[in-house]
């Protein structure tokens, strides 16, 4: 059978890496945003394959639906006409490549050290269901959940205060 979960996973992994690379290298910021949208959708697909249905829905609704639209909103509000003509990378970009490669290699080495290939198989019987996530979120993690609402409230107030037009005090 062609469409196995394994094949779907490798397709989504390859597509997410490709769209992430395209997102950080495109010259037009709007094109970058659209590639990031593709990345978020493919990561949501990987969440589905891993049995995290609720998180896949949150990824699509909150990340792709709210956060990315907010980014596009501000990008179009600022209206950067000369952006395409400017150099996309700073003159130090080889150092950025080295930094990214070394951090990725560090994470890779850490997982090679800790995850032995014998234990690499993900648990095949998915016993965690979406209702377990709900019970956990409103049971054991109810206090952090409420604190999250405080963080979001502080962020809303902060964003309004920061972006408000003040009368010039000079």
């Amino acid at each position: 059978m062609f469409f196995t979960p394994q094949a779907a996973f490798y397709y989504m992994a390859a597509a997410s890496v490709a769209s992430a690379i395209l997102a950080v290298t495109r010259k037009n910021p709007v094109h970058s945003m659209l590639w990031v949208l593709a990345l978020f959708m493919h990561v949501a697909g990987i969440f589905l394959l891993l049995g995290a249905e609720f998180l896949a829905a949150v990824q699509v609704i909150v990340y792709a639906g709210a956060i990315l639209v907010f980014y596009l909103f501000v990008l179009m509000l600022l209206d950067l006409p000369g952006e395409v003509a400017r150099p996309r990378f700073g003159p130090h970009w080889p150092f950025a490549v080295a930094g990214g490669l070394s951090l990725a290699a560090l994470a890779w080495l850490a997982q090679v050290e800790t995850i032995s290939p014998a234990h690499a198989e993900v648990a095949t019987s998915a016993t965690v269901e979406i209702s377990d996530v709900g019970w956990s979120l409103f049971g054991a993690f109810a206090l952090p959940f409420e604190i999250t609402s405080l963080i979001l409230l502080a962020a809303i107030v902060g964003a309004v205060v920061l972006a408000k037009r003040r009368p010039t005090a000079s």
Binding site: V17, A20, V24, L80, E83, F89, G90, W93, A96, A107
Partner: peptide, 12 residues
């Protein structure tokens, strides 16, 4: 790693 590269290299 791709995210780190983008953060360090992009000027926007």
């Amino acid at each position: 790693g791709i995210g780190v590269f983008g953060f360090l290299a992009r000027r926007n």
